[in-house]
């Protein structure tokens, strides 16, 4: 995994950073492609329970006689056309991909949002209060970052056991430190700006200063990291599921679908593994294209 770059300063406060972001975003074709790709995958995934031909988690609706059918075949018992074929459990691959994408995205969004929240709070507090609190928090962050994410997640999951919630907890643990470090870096600069000094002079409460004044102005770099981290979270979850410590087998994510389907590749039943693989790859590429551009836009040194 790469280390998201720390962005050290942000746009001046007068112009809304989000507006500027939108304007610049529209100029880059590659980023637009990424965004389109992402929407194309995310929207059907979110709507999966309503639009998927089959609910792959409802084992009562599966008939083993329909297993491992090639793409385009029609189920004898269910009457469904399996556009992407079926897997060994007679799950419609298209439905499984949609639901799997949903699981993958859910894990990624929840874990990244929570990491962002925790990381930003820690980072801002460290920067605002400084002193021993800063030293302590940053030491913890350092230690956390010196551990390879995969190892921490692996150990945590083997201890916590399987489950969607546990995967999310493990991913939060490995991701929050990035946000904390970035938030602190940005906040250290913002802290000395006039509007914060003014707020301090008005002797507003520290909670109010941190969350109402400091946070909004530190947000852009955090959003950049969050976007790229989404892709990491999806890939990391897939890897953990591949290693057998991820989501439960009865509710497969994309990573688990790929892992389970791989042994069918040699027998020519390529569709069981390849379609989830393509979906995963497209999702990650889409997020990265968007994130990459966001980084270019929001990094003032590159924007010049």
């Amino acid at each position: 995994m790469n280390t998201p770059m720390t962005v050290s300063s942000t746009a001046p406060a007068e112009e809304s950073p989000f507006r500027r972001l939108l304007m610049q975003f529209a100029e880059n074709r590659l980023a637009l492609v990424g965004l389109a790709l992402l929407l194309l995958l995310a929207v059907p995934a979110i709507l999966a329970p309503w639009i998927a031909p089959q609910n792959p988690y409802d084992i009562g609706s599966l008939d083993i006689l329909d297993s491992q059918m090639p793409p385009g075949s029609m189920g004898e018992m269910t009457g469904i056309t399996y556009w992407l074929g079926t897997d060994s459990q007679a799950r419609d691959v298209l439905s499984a991909v949609l639901f799997g994408m949903r699981t993958s995205l859910l894990v990624a969004f929840v874990s990244v949002s929570a990491s962002l929240l925790i990381g930003a709070t820690v980072g801002l507090c460290a920067a605002y209060f400084g002193g021993w609190l800063d030293a302590l928090l940053m030491r913890i962050v350092d230690i956390q970052l010196s551990f390879p994410a995969i190892l921490v997640a692996l150990i945590m999951l083997s201890i916590l056991g399987q489950g969607l919630d546990k995967v999310i907890v493990a991913l939060i643990v490995v991701q929050w430190a990035y946000f904390a470090r970035t938030a602190r870096g940005t906040a250290l600069v913002e802290r000395n700006r006039e509007y914060i000094l003014a707020a301090r002079c008005l002797s507003l409460g520290w909670r109010r200063i941190i969350f109402r004044h400091l946070l909004p102005n530190c947000l852009p770099p955090l959003i950049v990291i969050a976007t790229i981290d989404l892709a990491h979270a999806i890939a990391l979850e897939a890897t953990l599921s591949f290693l057998g410590v991820g989501v439960p087998v009865t509710q497969p994510s994309l990573g688990m679908l790929i892992a389970n389907g791989f042994e069918f590749m040699l027998s020519g039943h390529y569709w069981i593994s390849v379609f989830p693989g393509i979906a995963l790859a497209l999702a990650i590429i889409g997020i990265n294209l968007v994130g990459d551009h966001l980084r270019d836009v929001l990094n003032p040194r590159n924007a010049q």
């Binding site: 790469n2 890939a235 890897t239 791989f262 995963l280 790859a281 990265n288 294209l289």
Partner: peptide
């Protein structure tokens, strides 16, 4: 982008 965003195990497979 492809290189570092695709999961390691998938590339291997």
């Amino acid at each position: 982008i492809l290189g570092f965003s695709l999961p390691n195990f998938w590339i291997g497979l």
